[in-house]
């Protein structure tokens, strides 16, 4: 699952795809002290899983991710 065609990051976006396509979202994870960056499970888990695991607020977290991603053009997916 990747980002929405509009560039919007969704709860069902896969973490590994998200961080590869929008590396500027990585600081958001680090800021919340989340171990998702480089995690072996990031290819299985979604944004919703991460929000649930860390007890975050979905709306706020998605806003932070989308703001970071949209400040920088998406990277190639090779």
């Amino acid at each position: 699952m990747m980002t929405h065609p509009s560039g919007l990051i969704l709860p069902e976006s896969r973490l590994s795809d998200l961080m590869r396509e929008h590396p500027h979202t990585i600081p958001v994870f680090l800021r919340h002290h989340m171990v998702c960056v480089g995690c072996w499970m990031s290819k299985f888990d979604t944004v919703a899983d991460a929000v649930w695991n860390y007890g975050l607020d979905m709306e706020t977290f998605l806003r932070e991710l989308n703001q970071s991603a949209q400040s920088i053009p998406p990277q190639g997916t090779d």
Binding site: V35, C39, W40, M41, F44, D45, D49, N53
Partner: peptide
């Protein structure tokens, strides 16, 4: 519960 295992691993 992958995250539970990740917590033990980390």
């Amino acid at each position: 519960h992958p995250h539970g295992l990740v917590k033990i691993a980390e």
